Amino acid sequence: MYAKPKVAQADRLIEVPILGEWISLGDIDDASPEVGGMFVLSAMASKERLGWSAADIVGTARARARMHDGHSTRALTSLQTPTVEQFVADAVGWLLARGLIGPTAEAQYGPHWMLTSDGRAAAELSSATHIEAAMRLHADLHPVLNASARPNFERGDYATAVFSATQQVEIAVREAAGFEKRQLGVPMMRDAFKPGGPLSDADEVVSEQEAVRDLFVGAIGAFKNPTSHRAVEFDSPVEAASIIHLADLLLRIVDRAKARRATEAA
Rank of each mutant, 00 (worst) to 15 (best):
Ala133Leu: 07
Ser72Val: 14
Arg98Pro: 01
Met67His: 15
Ser32Val: 09
Thr83Ile: 08
His68Asp: 09
Val58Leu: 09
Asp27Pro: 00
Ala128Tyr: 02
Leu25Ala: 07
Ser78Trp: 07
Ile18Val: 15
Ala43Lys: 09
Trp113Pro: 01
Thr73Trp: 03
Pro17Asn: 02
Ile23Phe: 03
Leu13Ile: 01
Asp69Phe: 13
Val58Gln: 12
Leu100Gly: 06
Val84Arg: 02
Glu106Leu: 07
Leu25Asp: 05
Ala128Lys: 00
Gly51Leu: 02
Ile28Lys: 04
Ala89Glu: 15
Pro33Arg: 01
Ser53Tyr: 02
Gly59His: 09
Asp56Gln: 08
Lys6Ala: 15
Trp113Glu: 00
Arg98Met: 07
Arg49Glu: 15
Gly26Tyr: 08
Asp27Val: 05
Ala97Phe: 12
Ile131Lys: 08
Leu100Gln: 04
Leu95Asp: 10
Ala105Ser: 10
Tyr109Asn: 05
Val84Phe: 03
Arg64Asn: 11
His71Thr: 12
Phe39His: 14
Ala97Ser: 15
Glu124Leu: 10
Thr129Leu: 03
Thr104Trp: 09
Ala75Gln: 15
Asp56Glu: 12
Arg66Phe: 04
Pro82His: 15
Ala54His: 08
Ile131Glu: 13
Ala134Ile: 05
Phe39Asp: 07
Pro17Leu: 03
Thr83Asn: 13
His130Asn: 05
Ala63Val: 08
Tyr109Lys: 05
Ile131Pro: 00
Arg120Cys: 03
Ala75His: 11
Leu137Thr: 04
Ile131Val: 15
Ile101Arg: 07
Gly102Ala: 10
Arg74Pro: 00
Val84Lys: 07
Ser53His: 04
Ser24Ile: 01
Leu96Tyr: 09
Ser53Cys: 05
Ala54Tyr: 06
Glu85Met: 12
His71Gly: 02
Glu132Gln: 02
Leu79Pro: 01
Ser126Val: 06
Ala63Gln: 13
Pro33Trp: 13
Thr73Asp: 01
Thr83Arg: 15
Val40Lys: 03
Ala63Asn: 00
His68Ile: 12
Ser72Asn: 08
Leu79Lys: 14
Ser127Glu: 13
Gly36Lys: 12
Glu34Ser: 08
His68Gln: 13
Gly93His: 10
Arg62Phe: 00
Val40Tyr: 04
Leu137Gln: 04
Ala8Arg: 15
Thr83Met: 10
Met38Arg: 14
Leu100Pro: 05
Glu48Val: 14
Pro82Ile: 11
Gly110Leu: 11
Ser32Gly: 09
Thr73Leu: 14
Glu124Gln: 10
Ala91Met: 01
Arg12Cys: 04
Gln86Ser: 06
Met44Asn: 13
Ser46Arg: 15
Arg66Leu: 02
Pro17Gly: 06
Lys47Thr: 15
Glu85Ala: 14
Ala122Ser: 14
Ser53Leu: 00
Thr104Tyr: 04
Gly110Asp: 04
Gly119Pro: 06
Ala43Asp: 12
Leu79Tyr: 07
Leu115Gln: 03
His112Gly: 00
Ala31Cys: 06
Thr116Gln: 05
Gly102Asp: 11
Thr116Ser: 06
Gly37Val: 13
Tyr109Ile: 08
Gly110Asn: 11
Gly51Asp: 02
Glu132Gly: 00
Ala8Glu: 12
Gly102Pro: 03
Val58Gly: 12
Asp118Gln: 10
Ala121Gln: 11
Leu41Thr: 09
Ala61Asn: 12
Glu106Pro: 00
Thr60Trp: 13
Val35Glu: 15
